[in-house]
Simulated assay, not measured.
Amino acid sequence: MRVDAVLGVAVLLGSGVTAGVLFAVALSVLPALFAMETGTYVHAHKLLGRNWDPTMPVVVLSSTVLAAVLAFAADGTVPRTLFAVAAVLLLGVSAVSHLCNVPINRRVKAVADPTALPDDWEDPRPLWRRWHMLRTALSLVALVLNAAAVACG
Rank of each mutant, 00 (worst) to 15 (best):
T64G: 09
V144N: 02
G76H: 05
D75P: 04
D120M: 01
A10N: 08
V21G: 05
V42I: 15
L138W: 03
N105G: 07
P126N: 04
V88S: 09
M133F: 13
A73D: 11
L47W: 09
A73L: 15
D113W: 13
V141T: 12
A87D: 02
H45T: 00
A67F: 10
F83L: 06
P118N: 06
N51Y: 13
A73K: 14
V69F: 09
I104C: 04
M56D: 08
V65H: 00
L27T: 07
S139A: 15
G49P: 10
R130H: 12
F83V: 07
L66M: 15
A5P: 02
R129F: 10
L143A: 12
V6F: 15
P79D: 04
D123W: 05
R129K: 14
A149E: 03
A151Q: 11
L89F: 05
T115S: 15
L91D: 03
L48C: 05
L99D: 00
A73S: 11
D119Y: 00
V93N: 07
T136Y: 04
F34Q: 14
A10P: 02
L138H: 05
A68P: 04
V3K: 08
G16S: 11
C152K: 15
T64D: 07
D4W: 00
P31N: 08
V11P: 05
F83Q: 04
V78F: 03
A74C: 03
L82N: 02
V11T: 15
V25W: 06
G49F: 06
T18C: 14
S62G: 15
W131I: 00
M36A: 14
V9I: 15
D4Q: 09
V102F: 06
T81F: 07
D113S: 14
R2L: 12
S97A: 13
N105I: 01
P57R: 06
A148Q: 07
L12I: 14
L127N: 01
